[in-house]
Amino acid sequence: MAWNEPGGNNNDPWKNKGGRDQGPPDLDDVFKNLFGKFAKSGGGRGPGGGKSMGGIGLGLIAGLLVAIWVISGFYTIREAERGVVLRFGEFNQFVEPGLRWKPTFVDEVIPVDVQTVRDMPSAGSMLTEDENVVTVEMVVQYRVVEPYKYTFSVTNPEKSLSQALDSAIRYVVGHSTMDNVLTSGREVVRQQVREELEAILEPYDIGISIVDMNLKDARPPEAVKSAFDDAIAAQEDEERYIREAEAYAREIEPRARGQVNRMLEEAQAYKERVTLEAQGEVARFAELLPQYQAAPEVTRQRIYLETMENVYSNTSKILVDNKGSGNMMYLPLDKILERQQSNTPSAAQRNTLEGLRNVDPNPQNTPSNNTGIRSDRFRSGRD
């Protein structure tokens, strides 16, 4: 039931207490009574009787805060890191790996990894010097060498490196032809991108070192990929044929030089042999000349017989005049000899051989108009 009900009932709790009408209590009195009760419950005494509980509490709180502040100052720097210490926001020193302590709220430590090799990829479609579109993917590997510069030279070192890498790739690809980017010039493009990236980062001095640059992929747009694949295959075949031709040239050239040397030596040997044979013939005829001058007919006949002996010894076919009948007989002696070796000679073959034995060996007795071998030719040749 409300204290101020209608009808004149006044049940105000701040009035009529102790038989007198009073207002609400004073706030100062309320707080004094509260602190007094707190002091009594803690066994404290008044101002003239010793320390109050409020002083002890403040001391404990202060000690606890100091302990928390000291404990919060311990930190650890890992083996691969170096710590950049800032005192009130200003660079103070570097700290090595290990367990360290710093005054909290005074020093700030920023750990920086200086041993791990980091990767930064970049990819995009670019226009080459010959106005072709090519998609290039590259990855740069880098390492932090100066922690302070890496932290404070630029606002965001990784973003700066990414933008510099994109700029370097587009510059190099824009000054290269598509064939160089896709095939034979990939290594040149990779090296040029690295040099251009280092030149871009040098003014920024962000404290990193480029370890390596990898060209992961370079390909034409998908719409013309098949045509470029055929072109690349043709270029690879061309290079393979060139290498095979060079290998064949290296193989055949020593062999050809050997053949040339052998032919030169054979020609020199032939020259010496012919010269010696000619000199021998000259010496033989020089010895024969006095004999011919002493007996011309006998010497001529002997020379003729020796010549015919050499001629008939090197041929297997003979033409024989059939005793002035006007018919020329052909004797394939090679075939006859083969048959003699395989079978017994027949009667016709025996008659032929008998006819050969009866041939006049003196060509002077043979008529000059029907002979197969005319003596007057040899005679005229000798004369």
Results as ranks from 00 to 15, higher is better:
Val66Cys: 11
Tyr241Thr: 04
Glu266Cys: 01
Arg82Pro: 06
Tyr248Asp: 14
Glu198Thr: 00
Phe74Glu: 03
Ile208Gln: 02
Ala39Tyr: 10
Asn343Gly: 03
Asn351His: 09
Leu27Lys: 11
Gly36Cys: 08
Leu333Lys: 02
Gly54Asn: 09
Leu305Pro: 01
Arg190Asn: 08
Val173Ser: 02
Asp334Ala: 13
Gly326Gln: 06
Ser316His: 08
Asn10Cys: 14
Asp376Glu: 14
Gly57Met: 13
Met329Lys: 05
Val298Ile: 07
Thr104His: 08
Gly98Val: 03
Glu187Pro: 02
Arg273His: 08
Leu127Cys: 02
Phe35Arg: 11
Pro332Thr: 02
Ser176Val: 01
Gln191Leu: 13
Asp212His: 12
Gln141Gly: 14
Ala168Asp: 04
Gly355Glu: 05
Gly55Trp: 10
Ser176Lys: 11
Ala168Arg: 04
Glu238Arg: 14
Val181Pro: 00
Glu79Phe: 02
Asp130Gln: 01
Asn310Gly: 10
Arg20Lys: 15
Val189Gln: 06
Val139Ala: 03
Tyr148Pro: 01
Glu131Gly: 00
Glu265Thr: 06
Ala80Tyr: 10
Tyr241Asp: 11
Lys51Asn: 12
Ala267Met: 14
Ile210Pro: 04
Gln191Gly: 15
Ser325Lys: 09
Gly54Asp: 07
Met329Thr: 10
Asn327Trp: 07
Pro220Leu: 10
Asn4Ile: 05
Ala164Arg: 06
Asp29Gln: 14
Glu238Pro: 01
Leu99His: 08
Ala168Ile: 03
Glu309Tyr: 06
Val133Pro: 00
Thr151Val: 04
Ser162Cys: 01
Pro367Trp: 05
Trp14Glu: 04
Arg20Trp: 05
Met308Glu: 06
Trp3Cys: 06
Val117Ala: 08
Gln22Asp: 05
Phe228Cys: 03
Ser325Phe: 01
Leu289Glu: 10
Glu195Gln: 14
Leu64Thr: 11
Ser162Thr: 11
Glu108Met: 05
Arg45Lys: 14
Leu289Met: 08
Ile373Val: 12
Leu86Gln: 09
Met53Asn: 12
Arg262Ile: 03
Ala227Val: 12
Ser184Gly: 05
Pro6Ser: 09
Gln259Lys: 10
Asn358Met: 13
Ala67Glu: 07
Ala278Asp: 08
Leu264Thr: 07
Phe105Cys: 05
Gly73Trp: 00
Glu96Met: 11
Trp69Val: 05
Pro25Trp: 01
Gly372Lys: 05
Leu86Met: 15
Thr352Tyr: 08
Ile232Asp: 00
Gly83Ser: 07
Glu277Arg: 11
Leu197Ile: 02
Met53Asp: 02
Asn10Phe: 08
Glu354Val: 08
Glu202Lys: 15
Pro47Ile: 09
Glu309Ser: 13
Lys216Trp: 00
Val172Tyr: 01
Gly8Leu: 12
Ala218Pro: 04
Glu246Met: 10
Asp376Cys: 00
Glu281Ala: 10
Ser162Ile: 00
Glu108Ile: 02
Ile252Ala: 13
Val193Cys: 06
Ile206Trp: 03
Ile68Leu: 15
Tyr330Arg: 12
Lys335Ile: 10
Phe285Leu: 15
Tyr330Cys: 04
Val109Gly: 02
Arg250Ser: 07
Val66Thr: 12
Gly258Leu: 12
Asn214Pro: 01
Asn322Cys: 07
Gly19Tyr: 06
Phe88Tyr: 12
Arg374Leu: 11
Gln341Ile: 04
Val274Asp: 02
Gly355Tyr: 06
Glu287Ile: 02
Ser368His: 07
Gln341Asn: 12
Leu276Asp: 13
Pro24Asn: 01
Trp69Ser: 13
Pro47Arg: 14
Tyr304Cys: 04
Asp29Glu: 15
